[in-house]
Design a protein around this nucleic acid. Structure first.
Lengths: 257, 257
DNA sequence: GCCGCCGTCCCACTCAGTGGGACAGGCCTA
DNA sequence: TAGGCCTGTCCCACTGAGTGGGACGGCGGC
């Protein structure tokens, strides 16, 4: 064999590089395009893609192009199901959206970023930029701050030392300010996002706890800054988070011990 | 190297065997359990699982056990997003559930089975057995029959020649009877499931078309046989399917050409 | 006509992946 | 307490599976 053009070595890493070559925009990619994006040799990419297609991880369309396969969706859904979080949260999220007439989110922390597990948007409400499965830096989102505030200090240190990204002029980029913010979140049980992730969007979030009172995620309600009253929705967000925590087996977590 | 215990050869196939070892029930598996289920050597399974964990496809919990990773969910969601179907269907599905007060489904065909892309259950409605990402034989479901009825004859022949599974005593197992049923579906634009997939559950489905008037999936409303009036929901199902088809770019598909 | 890019296939080389085995530790039952 | 069984974890010699360079024909634009 020979050295991979850039970095990857093992076969599985190469195969994953092919899958990771897909970005939200593109629906189908040619084998040559896959080779270019993954940095693999053309013939290798071609053969690997064919193999992945045989396994259902990719699908080959009539033009010989490739797109992400249904098996991938199936496995991903299984991953979610096994975490159990979304299942127990779904009805609470729906109630939350109905009551507030705003978009509600369920997210977990993965590395230094939050991943959205579920998003429920009332038909009346305008579409936001968030997407199920999408990810954002934890420090600029309400859900991220809600999770971090109740995470072990070592984790917070790691996240902070990785740098504080800035998505808008409101994003918190100062470490001390963020620590103070997290302390406030810890006291109130609520995290807010005042146009820190996107201009014109505000959000109110609360942490969700699992067994052992360990934080496992967060829920939020967000909407256009002009159309959402954070003070009015905060109680609903908090009670939804508490409800999900209860189902997750956290018992009565709030009202500081 | 040496022969795989059972069948698989390539590295990626081996890695996928590890992922496929997970079943809906189990949340976490030990490396040894993974080895047993996948038929791989213990040391191979151990190393591969570690590699997959490094890539985010698996997650390693404190006990050294493994579970499906968040990256998998992310990729699966991307696969769905790129198909575009669920996005455009979501509001129609929600309307459908609201209007009928029953569970609505969106499904596509994959091989000889249907895969559920989305399921919306009104909070009042009891939980059915269906699961997002779950699959069932096409011939015993309303959505499956709706899709098959408008699929190329060759595909129907393939599905039929693969055998007609029987999940309840109502499942159609006779090829001629199923062909007659599909013809009826083609005329009416509606497919029904009278306890053919599960005893006590009935369903009404309609096909969804994409560009070129090609069938791309189906929507359905289903509920407990005693609580659902199929004749009353059929119009709603049909109009929802038509709406999704319109958004998908199928134009006016119905009213036979 | 030429050029560039595509999908597809072949094949010799070689090193990455494989699995047998070893070791320590945990959890049973006896 | 001793024995058995099953873990997680690591090492390492062997080898065949995976790699990528290259070739071929077809397609589309200039």
């Amino acid at each position: 064999m020979a050295r991979g053009g850039a970095a990857e070595t093992s076969s599985v890493a190469r195969a994953l590089a092919l899958l990771a070559a897909f970005r939200p925009r593109d629906r189908e990619l040619t084998a040559a395009e896959l080779a270019r994006r993954s940095g693999l040799a053309r013939s290798t990419a071609y053969r690997l893609a064919g193999e992945l297609a045989g396994l259902g991880m990719l699908e080959q369309t009539l033009g010989g192009r490739f797109r992400l396969g249904m098996k991938l969706f199936e496995l991903g859904q299984l991953a979610l199901y096994q975490q159990g979080l979304r299942e127990s949260a779904s009805s609470f999220l729906a109630d939350l959206s109905n009551a507030t007439r705003q978009t509600s989110h369920l997210a977990v922390l993965d590395g230094f970023e939050v991943v959205y597990l579920d998003i429920i948007r009332p038909s009346s409400s305008p579409r936001l930029r968030s997407r199920i499965g999408g990810r954002l830096p934890a420090t600029v989102t309400g859900v991220g701050k809600a999770i971090l505030a109740f995470s072990p200090p070592e984790l917070v240190d790691q996240v902070l030392s990785a740098g504080l990204p800035s998505l808008t002029s409101n994003s918190i980029t100062d470490e001390q300010r963020l620590r103070a913010e997290l302390a406030k979140v810890r006291r109130s049980g609520l995290a807010f996002d005042h146009q820190e992730q996107a201009v014109g969007t505000s959000c109110c979030a609360a942490p969700v706890f699992g067994s052992g009172k360990k934080v496992v995620g967060a829920v939020s309600v967000s909407g256009h800054t002009s159309s959402i009253r954070l003070d009015l929705v905060s109680a609903a967000v908090q009670s939804a988070a508490a409800g999900i925590s209860r189902v997750q087996g956290a018992g009565n977590w709030y009202i500081s011990p």
